[in-house]
């Protein structure tokens, strides 16, 4: 059974996600447009595609920070712990949000309302297939679970409150906070998916896949540096390795 507190927390999370999504919707429309130039090797078009993707990523980071700040318990953490958690979870939450927008019929990710990107589009934006393929495999796997808004929101909350992230000081508080979301998710699934007992462990294993994806992403960031593709300041701040 879900306690009244758990029920209201889940409602709050789903509403917070929708609110953050709404807020960034207008921003998404303002990013550098995806060029319709047919020639994939056109240098300017390639730069525009890279800018398009990085600007969407920046909006996504802002959305994740806004959402985290509305997570019960998050603002109880010190600012340093908030940064330590967000620095590592951001890419994983971004990949969860990407998977949420995966359309299996066209094997594409729909970031903007009417703009979908397949694997080749990701490559045209400057990403390497060593990163693109795992993204699409993960998205396909997540899509098969058919998670609803509440399950995504809880999974994201569990992902953010991971006490084993580098530089986290108050690990026990993070762990206690994570536990409230794990318990809520477990009860929620028992009620909503009564005849699929494996769904809970299956969802937790997605968090493990995200760790692998995160290290593949670090290789992608390193490869971009080798190609002199500069990340914008916010992305560089959280993903680049600063000597």
């Amino acid at each position: 059974k879900l306690t009244p507190e758990q029920l209201s927390m889940i409602k709050k999370l789903v509403a917070a996600q929708q609110q953050c999504n709404q807020r960034s919707f207008t921003d998404r429309l303002k990013v550098t447009p995806w060029p319709q130039v047919p020639d994939p090797n056109n240098r300017e078009a390639r730069q525009q595609r890279f800018a398009h993707f990085t600007e969407l990523a920046i909006i996504s980071v802002q959305e994740i920070v806004d959402f985290a700040k509305q997570l019960p318990g998050f603002l109880e953490l010190t600012r340093e712990d908030q940064i330590a958690l967000l620095k590592t979870s951001t890419i994983e939450v971004m990949l969860l949000e990407t998977s949420r927008r995966y359309n299996p019929e066209i094997e594409s990710i729909t970031f903007l309302k009417d703009l979908s990107y397949n694997r080749d589009d990701f490559a045209k934006a400057g990403l390497q297939f060593e990163f693109i393929n795992p993204i699409f495999e993960f998205s396909k796997g997540m899509n098969e679970l058919q998670l609803n808004d509440a399950e995504y929101a809880l999974l994201i909350a569990i992902n953010i409150f991971s006490a084993d992230r580098p530089n986290v000081q108050d690990q026990s508080l993070v762990e206690r906070l994570q536990h409230t979301y794990v318990e809520a998710l477990h009860s929620y699934i028992c009620i909503n998916r009564p005849n699929d007992r494996l769904m809970f462990p299956r969802m937790l294993m997605k968090l493990v896949s995200l760790r692998t994806l995160s290290s593949v992403h670090s290789e992608q960031v390193f490869a971009l540096r080798l190609q002199d593709k500069k990340l914008p300041p916010l992305l560089s701040e959280i993903w680049d390795v600063h000597e």
Binding site: V61, Q62, V65, D66, K69, R79, E80, Q82, I83, A84, L86, K87, N167, P233, L234, E237, I238, H242
Partner: peptide, 16 residues
């Protein structure tokens, strides 16, 4: 932890 000025800004933003 490095200073993460931009992330700090996003975290501070609404609370002011």
């Amino acid at each position: 932890v490095k200073d993460h000025q931009l992330l700090r800004y996003l975290l501070d933003k609404d609370e002011k």
